[in-house]
Computed example of a mutant assay.
Amino acid sequence: MEITLNDLTINPEGIDIDELLNDWAWAMPEPMRPVLLTALGDLFAQGESGAVYFIDVIEGDIRPVAEDGSTFEELLSDTEFVTDHLFPARVVELRDAGIELEANQVYSHQQPLVLGGSDELENYETSEVSVYISILGQIHEQVKDLPEGTVISDVEIEDIE
Rank of each mutant, 00 (worst) to 15 (best):
L5N: 00
D154E: 15
A45P: 02
H85Y: 14
S134Y: 07
K144G: 04
V151W: 05
E59P: 03
R63S: 15
E19N: 03
P34I: 09
V65L: 13
T71E: 08
E122H: 12
E128T: 11
G50C: 09
N104R: 13
E13Q: 10
F54H: 15
V155T: 08
D61K: 14
A97F: 06
L113N: 12
I3T: 14
M28Q: 15
A39K: 06
Q105K: 11
L101C: 06
I55D: 03
I160W: 11
A97I: 02
I157A: 08
D96R: 14
E120L: 05
E48W: 02
E30W: 09
H85R: 14
D159A: 10
E148A: 07
Q46V: 09
A97T: 07
Q111M: 14
E67I: 07
I99N: 10
G98L: 06
S70Y: 15
E93C: 05
P112I: 02
S130V: 04
P31T: 09
E80V: 05
S108N: 14
A97R: 13
E19A: 05
G47M: 12
A97S: 14
I62F: 02
I160S: 07
G41Y: 09
I139G: 03
G137S: 07
G116T: 05
Y132M: 11
L113W: 11
D145P: 11
S49D: 10
S70L: 07
L86G: 10
I3P: 00
S49N: 13
I62K: 00
E122M: 04
D84H: 09
L75K: 15
K144L: 07
D16N: 15
P64Y: 05
T79Y: 03
A27C: 08
D84W: 04
G137R: 05
Q111K: 15
A39N: 03
E148F: 12
T71F: 02
G137Y: 07
T4G: 06
A27L: 08
L8I: 09
V129D: 04
V155S: 00
T150E: 14
D18Y: 08
A25P: 00
D145A: 03
Q142Y: 06
E122T: 04
L21R: 05
E74N: 14
E161L: 08
Q105L: 04
E100R: 06
D56W: 12
M32C: 06
D78S: 13
P112V: 02
M1I: 01
F44W: 08
A39L: 07
D7P: 13
D56S: 11
E100A: 14
T126H: 09
F54D: 09
F72W: 03
D56T: 06
V92E: 01
S153K: 13
I99K: 14
E13I: 03
R90W: 10
G116P: 09
F72D: 07
L5F: 06
E120C: 05
T4Y: 03
V57N: 13
D96W: 00
P147I: 12
P34K: 04
V82W: 04
I99E: 12
Q142T: 07
G137C: 07
G149L: 10
G117H: 11
E100L: 04
L5A: 01
E141N: 13
G50L: 05
L75A: 09
S127K: 04
L37M: 14
